[in-house]
Write a protein that binds this DNA or RNA. Structure first.
Lengths: 242, 242
DNA sequence: ACCTGAACACCGTTCAAGT
DNA sequence: ACCTGAACACCGTTCAAGT
């Protein structure tokens, strides 16, 4: 949310307004977003800010605590996610989609959060919100916990794979034949479903909707619209969607 | 680019014979497993091997392609995962558990695979195997693809969170009260289910079993509710691998 | 074919010294 | 309170020179 409103233009050697900790963090975050943590060197950062390398140390201590501050900021940003929508179902979907978008917007920072063991902390607010909706939909106890986790892991998994495809080597056209021959085993629809590289957001929304339909009990939501699936006797696991 | 030298066999017990590419990779992998990629410096590696820093360059080119080779090796190792068990259900579970174990055994290397966009490639073999079982259980087309992805994402999600807990800051005792007050909302069982830090493997197996029960159509498997496994030991995975 | 030390450019960090 | 350059230890990499 806090965007760079800094009036500073990076003109190396040019005197400017006083250097502030916020300005250092902004410039550092920008470098990390573009080139990852190893693209952030104290000397490049100083050049970007037009100061001496050593000035930075006064404001942020050292490189490690600078990265820590960036991580802290990221956690705080992800913590501000709120649900939107009328029904629990819609609100869960909105949470998942927002989560996905925010994670994809800062992959390097998210990776740094993970390295520092703060992934769960980062998800805490979203987890609480998911929990609230799942509760509102009627789930309790272990069932509710499972549902929250399922959504969370699905988001993580999708983001991971998407992020991976972005930086994947060429492979995109040659990919299908990994699946064709006997791999997909006489099931062409499956082969396509697995090998295709379509609109990632659509795929995400679709499979998440299916998951939510399987997880949440029917009837809490007018928009359910799908014929109820019979699950055998005791089994109550998530079914599919449309 | 330097060509790979002939596969000469170094004396098994002896730490110091002639320097070989394999020996370099082994030592490098060991350093990465212990301290992560940034713990691998060419100079430390040379010290470890008892050679001059520059000798390494003859065998592996440079640091970047050394890391590439490590990644390649990791992908190859994860590619060797095989299913075990009698029923599709059991085989899916065994695949997931083996996958989890192998991923947890080399978190840094897995992260490097991901950075290079090879995550999907690394999962390819497991994905094919999962697909085979899901097919055997009777799923087809998009349903089968969804099931494979669900298992895959669940494994990834669990490994991510587990890994995260390992390196998380203290927080373990203070964690529950994040959930207590109005967070878990009058549902104490839920609060405990979400905040607890119990045997991670058990949690994994339990939620995966639930997922599989929900995904696979009933009737293909007689052992639906069998209370067979209660031992804590890791009993199913093939301990193949280098 | 394999190994070596010297040398270079870059890095994070400290510190005495400035204002 | 803030900023600075010099200096140090460490890094990856190149290269001419050894065997």
């Amino acid at each position: 949310m806090p965007t760079p409103p800094s009036p500073r233009r990076p003109a190396p050697g040019q005197p400017r307004a006083t250097l502030t900790r916020e300005a250092v963090l902004d410039a550092a975050a920008s470098l990390v977003r573009q080139h990852g943590p190893q693209g952030l060197t104290m000397r490049k950062l100083a050049a970007e800010l037009g100061t001496a390398v050593t000035s930075i140390y006064w404001h942020v201590g050292n490189r490690e605590s600078l990265l820590d501050a960036l991580v802290e900021r990221t956690v705080r940003e992800l913590d501000e996610i709120r649900a939107r929508g009328a029904t629990p179902r819609a609100r869960v979907l909105s949470l998942a989609r927002t989560l996905r978008r925010e994670l994809l917007a800062r992959p390097h920072l998210v990776a740094m959060v993970h390295e520092r063991g703060l992934t769960e902390r980062m998800f805490l607010s979203a987890q609480q919100a998911l929990l609230h909706e799942v509760h509102a939909a009627g789930l309790r106890g272990a069932r509710a916990a499972e549902a929250v986790r399922a959504v969370q892991f699905t988001v993580i998994g999708h983001v991971l794979v998407e992020r991976n495809r972005e930086r994947a080597p060429v492979q995109r056209p040659g990919e299908p034949d990994l699946w064709d021959t006997r791999t997909a085993e006489d099931d062409r629809a499956l082969a396509r479903a697995l090998a295709r590289a379509p609109d990632a957001e659509r795929v995400f929304t679709t499979s998440l909707r299916a998951l939510v339909n399987g997880l949440l009990p029917p009837g809490t939501d007018g928009s359910a619209g799908s014929p109820d699936r019979s699950s055998g006797g005791t089994s109550d696991g998530p079914s599919d969607g449309p």
